[in-house]
Amino acid sequence: MKGQNLGFQGTPEQAEKLKKVIEEHKSTPGCLMPVLQEAQAIYGYLPIEVQTMISDGLGISLSEVYGVATFYTQFSLTPKGKHRISLCLGTACYVKGADKILAALEKKLGVKCGECTVDGLFSLDSCRCVGACGLAPVMMIDDDVYGKLNVDMLDDILQPYREGKK
């Protein structure tokens, strides 16, 4: 029963891109991880349709592909928000109160960590140390890093994204 994920809307261009990636890597030993990474870069996540293409293309069983995809936190089986918030929960950030920032973000966005807002604008995740410990506590929204956070700053930071200015 394929097509479990009714929301999947891959384009032929994306499929073509993925096919190329698979062809390029096929003969490299241990290529599954790089292919999954590039596939996620193309589609934003790794639904069953994408993993099936990879399984077929590389001749690796779907259960193995899925086992790898669910082992690493980087891989996502569900679509992410338009803007991806990633709050660092590394030690340096934790001792400086990152847990409080996370709780505040969860409340503001109305989602739990790991989820995506209903409007699809934000997804909220935690991560382990972005290596900017000097700025702790830190979060990333897409590729931008926001440091030395406190709860009161959050609305100002989120606003431009809400208004579509970022």
């Binding site: 030993p29 241990g30 991880m33 936190t73």
Partner: peptide
């Protein structure tokens, strides 16, 4: 080779298993 977010891959045998694509 890029890791994909698994602390255990800092362990040498796990790191190699990961490079091997598992």
């Amino acid at each position: 080779r890029l890791g994909a977010g698994a602390f255990v891959c800092g362990e040498e045998t796990a790191l190699m298993t990961s490079i091997e694509g598992h």
